[in-house]
């Protein structure tokens, strides 16, 4: 018996929602970044599933590029967090509001 591909898509949806909830409820900038990584992983799973469904390789190439972008995003984001921590000595996003009007 083969697993229906819809299950993979539903799992991807659940994973994305957990990531979105994590972005909404967490106050720690690092954990917010991890939740964003969760959402990117969910999208990767959906891409690979569609790629398998269509018997095509393009989805897997897209996953490759998403991973590149995720790596770049994580590096720049963490550099920003380090710079902020050096100035304000906190990673709580409630305290980082100097750009708020």
């Amino acid at each position: 018996m083969v697993v229906p591909l819809t299950w993979y898509l539903v799992l991807s949806g659940i994973l994305f929602s957990i990531g979105a909830v994590g972005v909404l409820i967490n106050r720690n900038a690092l954990v917010i970044f991890m939740s964003i990584e969760l959402m990117l992983n969910a999208v990767n799973l959906a891409f690979v599933t569609f790629s398998r469904q269509q018997n095509s390789m393009d989805g897997q190439i897209f996953v490759f590029f998403i991973m590149t972008v995720a790596a770049a995003e994580a590096v720049v984001g963490l550099a920003i967090i380090i710079a902020l921590f050096r100035n304000k000595a906190t990673v709580n996003v409630d305290d980082i509001n100097i750009m708020k009007w």
Binding site: I18, V31, M34
Partner: peptide
């Protein structure tokens, strides 16, 4: 799913 909830 369990680990993702753990992350959050």
């Amino acid at each position: 799913i369990a680990c993702a909830i753990g992350v959050v």
